[in-house]
């Protein structure tokens, strides 16, 4: 490994391309921690937004009118406002309210607010994605399950959801890719994710063009891995002859 780091030091000397995040231990450590933070932020938000999507879609199909209305306005609010404004709303709006109650330091960290905000943002789209997947399951298939004696819950869990999920996967992939890209907004509330630590690096080292390239490549690889995994998964659960 040391050989690689030395090569980047040599590269700087020979060409002036200054990639401190590789040869300088301090920069390497903070960039790595930013990379890990981005991966963690993405993973947690993906998970939560999918859970929100499934629950929201389920509530929208339920008989509880009040719950349906709440979900409807949640979707409207989060789809029709910029995610950066949502993030500020949570962090500065709700965050300072909570601080007022709690006394001294913030009760909820900026990382937590980023997770909450981004999960609700992507979750609103996921509700719509899963809902249209559920609506694409033929009414007659559901009736067949009912006629065989399946309960409402069994029908949902064993028939409707597995089919709706398969139908939803392509749209879900798109939204999750978007979510990973949107984690960069957490920069705005000083969450030490990849973009934020990079800005610290380039302020100290004055290597803005180099860091921009590093960022592009890193996000490209990150999203690439996600897309690859989702495609493999899509293929693995594909049903022969089920035309989607």
């Amino acid at each position: 490994m040391q050989f690689v780091w030395n090569w980047f030091r040599w590269l700087y000397g020979a060409t002036g391309i200054n990639l401190t995040v590789f040869y300088d231990p301090f920069d390497r450590a903070r960039f790595a921690s930013g990379f890990v933070m981005t991966v963690e932020l993405s993973a947690v938000c993906i998970l939560l937004s999918v859970v929100i999507g499934v629950l929201g879609a389920w509530i929208q199909g339920s008989r509880l009118r009040v719950a349906r209305t709440v979900v409807y306005w949640y979707i409207q609010a989060f789809r029709n406002t910029p995610p950066l404004v949502q993030l500020y709303f949570f962090y500065f709006g709700l965050g300072s309210l909570l601080k007022g109650v709690g006394g001294s330091g913030p009760i909820v960290s900026n990382v937590t607010w980023a997770i909450v905000s981004l999960s609700f943002f992507a979750g609103a789209f996921n509700v719509e994605i899963f809902r249209s997947g559920i609506e694409a399951v033929p009414r007659t298939t559901i009736e067949a399950a009912e006629s065989l004696g399946f309960s409402r819950l069994q029908t949902y869990l064993r028939i409707v959801f597995p089919l709706a999920f398969r139908i939803s996967l392509p749209a879900l992939n798109n939204n999750l890719v978007n979510l990973v890209k949107t984690t960069t907004l957490a920069y705005a509330i000083a969450v030490p994710e990849m973009l934020y630590v990079s800005s610290q690096v380039w302020s100290d080292e004055l290597n803005v063009p180099e860091m921009m390239n590093v960022l592009l490549v890193c996000y490209f690889l990150l999203v690439g891995v996600l897309v690859y995994v989702m495609h493999r998964w899509e293929r693995a659960i594909r049903v022969p002859g089920f035309g989607i």
Partner: peptide
């Protein structure tokens, strides 16, 4: 038990699984 014009099999289950599902989960 009812049989429908459009068959309405569960498309994500094999023929055997389609037949087995209700006895296992309902009965």
């Amino acid at each position: 038990s009812m049989v429908f014009q459009q068959y309405n099999l569960f498309p994500h289950k094999t023929a055997l699984q389609n037949v087995m599902m209700a006895p296992i989960h309902v009965l």
